[in-house]
Design a protein around this nucleic acid. Structure first.
Lengths: 208, 208, 208, 208
DNA sequence: TATGAATGAGGGTTCATTCAT
DNA sequence: TATGAATGAACCCTCATTCAT
């Protein structure tokens, strides 16, 4: 495999790549505004100012578009979150960084996150992407990290990492609809609260 | 306003009420199985064994049906959960009872819960019901209770009841898709874990 | 199985049956005029004076409509041709009656025949119906009859009934496009010629 | 009119001529495999390995391409069949050579023949080419030859050359779909049968 | 009270064709 | 000479909804 290129990704023109990204971006905004079901080709193309047919020209079918949306949205999120988490060395530090960077990214890229969640939750999304989905992967990775630090004695030994990971992800994702609908919702304050909650919930007995 | 009738509820014959309930029940199962977007009048009526037109006859439009679904699903849930919560006298006791009864109800009435959540999350749902939504109400009621016991000194004083309520609801609701898709998911074990997490997260300093 | 009713045919209203027949009839005429590929729901519905959606309401999908078309067209043809063939007792007599009644039916119901042939020949038709197709069945039945009379000594023994049946059917079906496009084409004269050709081609040596 | 050029044939560069032939050849194979309706520019260009636009560049429109297909396919067929027919001097000999060479060519160049027939039978084909069509011309030429030998007393005098020509062409063309779909179909055996049939059908009384 | 016939809008997708490069 | 971007019309199909019966 060549470095920097996926195995079976078709070669694409510069313009094609740009258009795909542009259309996917419009799809993200449309999904964020109208939901997965409301994101028809007509609505998306209208937002970009192109014809409906052009979306079909650039994407094999709707699945293909949605895959690109998830990929695009997730990539940005991961490249924001990962370094901030890895900069920490302790379990509690990483957990705090994980929650904070997730919610900070959500604050600044609300639509990306909403779209990811919306696709992962939609019936078609669950059927088609499932394991691809950033959301599913996020739970897995988080669970794995929790488990590691737990073994290392940095977290209390008697919680189930799987359940804990689900609860943490759920708390993070719960911010997304509030951000959209509740103008008084203060996500930074919310972030501090969630950090505190799960710090208490994971803390080892001897933690001061 | 007529006596004995809510503000704008039209009076309904016995048969009408029964049909509405029957159709709403079928809608609940359909939504649970196929998602909100998959719950067309055709699919719902097919499940009941009636004509498509009859749904339109009994409900003003799809929104009206979905309001009934939410109402019906919530009522059952509330009548299960409320007494179990009120049976407790302490804050931690009520919180535990709240989480446990919510998840127990979900275990035994999965479709009801899935439908509620699915509607609340769908774009149309958010737009149309919003304050009606059981989910939103659930957060409000929970927040209010947390706040009361916090003032009474039964919970640690330095958490934000709003954020805490959101996190608790999120953890509860997160169980729903897992219940549907992950056959290895053990909701009773999950329930104990969530109880422990939020017990630690809300515990007052002097709690033994 | 109840007499006079097929095993799994859904029960249909009087109106539904009538509409299905009417739409299928319009489909037949449309196919005859514009070919299989030209027979879109839009064109067919326009001919009937109904909305496009109504066709989808009465037929599960395009295949369903085409099955009805073939069925409807074939039934009429068979009920015309069969008694005329069975009225004959000798091989040559039946062969003559077969050719004559086929072409006479074609003369009076040109569109029915064109539609059957068009569907049988279209790529989708071949894939979907194939053995259902009246055309295929016609060849089989004819071959079987030829074979029987050949064994009985009423036809010359040294021809292959399969090849003969194909040639006869081909000569019959060849009249269809001519009927449509060549105003000078005289189908009755053509009928007599074809009868003569295949009489000579099948005649036993001792035939006077 | 320019010297050395047919009435309305535009002059073409060597490359242009080659490309047109290459594209037409791909169209022939595509039609044979997927039918006339399935032979879209996308599928054809994919087979050649060129862009869709290039077909539109070399051909005025789809009709233009199909005319080239018919022309190209017919030319090969004619150059195969004609000398074999002309090598015979008697009527029956030529008729036998005609049928045999037609079916032999079909056996060895199935796609060419399928494409010709498919186009001639398609609704667009009938409308657009008609007199151009090799099939139509084939009937005419055959009819003329039959008529000539009939006048010369080599065939029985009482058949209509037009009807006979149609029946012969129909029997020949009927082999094409069988060749494609019926793996047990033996075209050489079929050829002998058809020769025998039409020999008997055309034979003059005193033929031994 | 309930049905089934009917509509019209909107869904994704395929197509031949045009045009700037 | 050839490409690939782009269009707009047409395709079948599903939907919520209306209405006469």
């Amino acid at each position: 495999m060549q470095p920097g290129a996926a195995a079976d990704e078709p070669e694409r023109t510069f313009i094609e790549t740009a258009r795909r990204a542009q259309i996917a971006a419009a799809a993200i905004d449309t999904i964020a505004e109208l939901g997965y079901a409301g994101a028809s080709f007509a609505r998306i193309s209208e937002r970009v100012g192109i014809s409906r047919g052009l979306i079909s020209y650039h994407f094999a079918d709707k699945d293909d578009l949605m895959r690109q949306v998830v990929h695009q949205a997730a990539e940005e999120a991961i490249s924001y979150i990962r370094p901030r988490v890895l900069a920490e060395s302790t379990g509690p530090g990483m957990l705090r960084a994980y929650i904070e960077s997730n919610l900070a990214f959500m604050r600044d890229h609300r639509n990306n996150v909403i779209a990811m969640i919306e696709i992962a939750r939609s019936a078609e999304g669950r059927r088609s992407y499932h394991d691809d989905t950033a959301v599913v992967n996020a739970v897995r990775a988080l669970e794995h990290a929790l488990s590691g630090f737990q073994t290392a004695g940095q977290f209390r030994p008697d919680f189930d990492p799987h359940a804990m990971a689900i609860a943490i992800r759920a708390a993070i994702e719960a911010a997304s609809p509030l951000l959209a609908s509740d103008p008084e919702f203060d996500i930074d304050s919310y972030s501090r609260q969630i950090v505190a909650i799960f710090d208490l919930a994971t803390r080892a007995d001897d933690t001061p």
